[in-house]
Structures are given as structure tokens and as C-alpha cells.
Design a protein around this nucleic acid. Structure first.
Lengths: 253, 253
DNA sequence: CAGCATGGTGTATTTTGAACACAATAGTAT
DNA sequence: ATACTATTGTGTTCAAAATACACCATGCTG
């Protein structure tokens, strides 16, 4: 939460730099040790968590704004990032109104604006993320989807909508290139699908289907070192993958 | 196009009533005599066409704003209406900036704002629409999808995105309840699907599949009067239809 | 080197989708 | 009337795909 002095400064900057009434919130999905994870910010001196978000500069395309926000929080660029919904209930930012309404008169108070927020979701490679809190936050960290803190405002709903969209997307687009490391085994990829869908899939049928999409290349070398039989390593065939993104896959899970 | 006096008045009203920077544009689909149609407005004294649109009131949920706009243009309420994308390129409304920039100084000129527009698409019953132009338009009429006028701004792109979304939606949601009259024959429904998808479907397989969804009720009475064999009349089973909307259908076309 | 957990490959069965044939009906032409 | 024709309803066949399950291979463990 802001002190009064911080609030005054923030509002001045915001008013001169950003578009009124619009914000962006990002649901950033990562995948690690068999768990789907979401990046979430904890506000300084508060037990409050939010999705990473920000505002749109006066002359900035919204996709670029979302990319900028993503880059600020993760250090990553040029990754899968997709708009999925606008949340436009006038009451949705009321908690912020109320929190700051006594500190500044409405004309000067950026937070007495009503905000629509544009939801974006991103798929990122967990290990490459260099997570960085913003100026109001004391931490920016991954949470298991199954073990989330209580998100404030309507951010829980935003997250749920993003997850629903992601599950739907699985039916007609390949995913994984953005969530997996360069090389991975088939069981690892399967685990990703199972985690997103929250259900078990048959090992053998998964493999057949996945290979049927023609977006994977098998490496000559299997993965050594682990116990048990050494699995093959795969990587995505980027050209075919991009094509599948455009053309869409047949049928769903 | 506005005269200067009209512009001044409009800007005053707009500034006091509407949220800055946000607009809504609606792609309103109808179906008649075997053609998919879109409602489009022609501006007074100009060869310019636009999608029906409007602004969001300062304290109005965005879905309600879209509904209001739809009702103003069609007289219809409580129909299928769905947000599908936000268009947020800063240059997208430049033609409007340029058009009005010499008439009023930027501080007073609503149109020197940058606008994001939220795209909604609606499916409506053609014959129940009472189409009504807005104050800047001389007509509000249906155009065949295959025979559209040149839409201004980025409205052609908005329409295309809406159509893509509609086609995708066909894969996992029932449509038709909103586009068809209460009672209809199977060939009529098939024609709707064929028109949206822009391809021929097999008559018999279409019927089996459609019935398999369990969202249709067959009437006792066939349709009389036409030449040839009298087809059965169907209507949607609203309860199952709603359920299918929520649960989704299996696989696609 | 047997045990076992894991990964790769194959096969039978069921379900689904695509293509097609034929019968029923209601107007039309003669 | 009666044959003709365009259209609709229903069934059947064949191929493809999804599902379920069996078996072999591998590499560590004790």
C-alpha cells in the first residue's frame, strides 16, 4: 500500500504517462516439477496478492504494453502472450477506490478512476524467468495452481478465465513450445498436458497422437543419468509448430 | 460527418457521459434466405460504412453497454452477445482524428482521444430485427457477407476476427438458437452451418450428428405447403441447449 | 543378476466420421 | 389419373481414429 507521498507521486506520473481507465493484468503460466504455476505479486507490508499488471502508455499498442509488463516481471520477451478477455464491471476496482479515497481528492486520485482491465495470459519457460517485483511489491513468485494465495480484486476470476481459455486452446492449438525447455522427454510433455487438463492420459495414446501432429523432432541421444530406461529427447519442430498454431489441430482431448 | 456545431455538442455530451478512450463495436450477424448477413451503418452524406458502435457510460458494465448498443440498433434484447477481442492499436482511430482535428482544439475534441474498441458479436433472428440508424447515420441495413461495402477504420478487420471466432465457436458450442426462427427444418439449419463455414456438408451426416447433440425437439407436424416431401419441423430444446453452451460439444467440423 | 520401475512399441476392440444407396412424399406435367 | 422429379427421411458400408491393453527393453538397485 502507498503512503500519501508515494501516492501523490504515482498519480502524477500515471496521469501524464498512461491511458486513463485501462489496465492490463497478466496470468503468467510456468511449468516446473510436474506442477503448473502462476506468477503472483505480494504487496509490501500487506497480506495481499495480485496478478502482475500495469497500464497502457498513451501512445502504445496494447499488445506492446502487455509485452512490456511481462518483460518487466520476468525478463522474457517474444514469448507466447495472448489477450483473452476484458473485465469491465464498474465495481471491480472498488477496493482500490476505497483504500485511497481519503488520501487524495478524486480529481487528483488516479485510483478513483474506474478501470477496465484487459486480461493476457502468457506461457513461459519456468527456468528462464528472472522474476522481479514491481515498486509496490515485496515479492514476485511462483505459486502452484493448487496452492494459491487469495488473490485480491477480481484477480481470482481473471486467473480462472485464463485457465479455462488455456484448456480450450489445447483443443485446437499446440502448446508446450513456450512452457517446456528446449529438449524434453515424452513423459515430461505428457505431464504438462495432464497438469493443465487436470486428468490422466494414456501414455501410449498420448505419444501416438502427439507424434501424429508432426511438430516434434526426436533427438538421436536419449536422456542419460536417471534411473530406469533412458527416454528419448524431443524438441519442437519450430516450422511445423508455427504452422500448427496458424492452421489449428484437428479435434480435442 | 459532423458539422462544427454538431461536433461541439456531441463532444460535450460525450465527455460528461462516457468513459474516455473506450468504445464498443458490434458485429451483428443475421441469417436470411440462405445468406449470412451483417448489420452496417452508412454515415449521412458520405460513402462511409461502419459497424454499429458506441461508448461505455461512466458507470456501466461493458456487457451492459454492448447490450444497450445492440438494442438501440436492432430493438432486440437478451440475445447471444459475446465479447471477442480488443483492438488497441493507437493508430486505429487516426482517420477520425484527422477528420475533426481542425474543427476543435484537442482538449475539447472527443475524437482526438485515442480509442480502444471492444469487439462484440451478436447472433440475432433476422426477421425480428427492427434496424434503426443512429444520429450520424442515414441507414442501418443488412449486407450479405459476400457483398459488403468497404468498412472504414479497422472495421473490416474487426468483422473478420468476429467471423473467425464464430467459426471456431461452432466447434465446441451449439449455435442456431439465436439465429434461427423458433421452428425450422433440418435442411434450413444445415444451410446456416454451411453458410458460416463456407463449405458443403453431407445432409445425412449433418442430421445424425446434430440429433446426437440432443438439443433438438422434433415437432409432430411436418412443414406443409412447399413442393416436394414435407420436412419435419424442429425446435431447440432450450434446457439442453443451455447445458451444451456451458459444457461444450465434443469435437468439431 | 534378479527385481522393478520406467519407457518404447504393437495389437485388438470400440467408437466415430465419411461416403453412399434407397425408400417416402408432395407437388408438377401430361 | 399417372408418371416424373426434386426433396427429405433412414439405413448400411467402409475407413479412420480413439481407446484399452500386452509385451519387450533398459538401467539402476540390492
Amino acid at each position: 500500500m502507498f503512503t500519501k507521498q508515494e501516492l501523490i507521486e504515482f498519480c502524477q506520473t500515471a496521469r501524464s504517462s498512461y491511458l486513463d481507465h485501462i489496465s492490463i493484468d497478466c496470468v503468467i503460466f510456468g511449468f516446473h516439477s510436474g506442477q503448473l504455476k502462476v506468477l503472483s505479486l505480494k504487496i509490501k507490508n500487506e497480506e495481499s496478492w495480485y496478478l502482475p499488471g500495469g497500464f497502457v502508455r498513451k501512445n502504445e499498442p496494447i499488445d506492446m504494453a502487455a509485452n512490456r509488463i511481462l518483460k518487466e516481471r520476468t525478463g522474457l520477451d517474444e514469448i507466447f502472450l495472448q489477450q483473452f478477455h476484458v473485465f469491465g464491471d464498474p465495481e471491480r476496482s472498488r477496493p482500490h477506490h476505497d483504500l485511497y479515497k481519503d488520501m487524495l481528492p478524486p480529481e487528483e486520485n488516479w485510483f478513483s478512476n474506474r478501470f477496465l482491465t484487459i486480461g493476457y495470459y502468457a506461457l513461459v519457460d519456468f527456468v528462464h524467468v528472472n522474476s522481479t517485483p514491481d515498486q509496490h511489491s515485496e515479492s514476485c513468485t511462483w505459486y502452484d495452481l493448487s496452492d494459491l494465495p487469495d488473490l485480491k480484486l477480481d484477480h481470482a476470476r481473471i486467473l480462472k478465465t485464463a485457465l479455462d481459455t488455456l484448456r480450450l486452446q489445447l483443443n485446437y492449438q499446440p502448446i508446450g513450445y513456450n512452457l517446456m525447455p528446449k529438449e524434453f522427454t515424452m513423459p515430461e510433455l505428457q505431464k504438462l498436458y495432464e497438469t493443465i487438463l487436470d486428468k490422466k492420459l494414456d501414455r501410449r495414446n498420448f505419444q501416438r497422437r502427439m507424434l501424429g501432429f508432426g511438430i516434434l523432432n526426436r533427438s538421436d541421444q536419449p536422456r542419460k543419468g536417471g534411473a530406469h530406461k533412458a527416454p528419448y529427447l524431443y524438441s519442437f519442430d519450430l516450422k511445423n509448430y508455427q504452422n500448427a498454431l496458424k492452421e489449428g489441430l484437428k479435434s480435442g482431448w
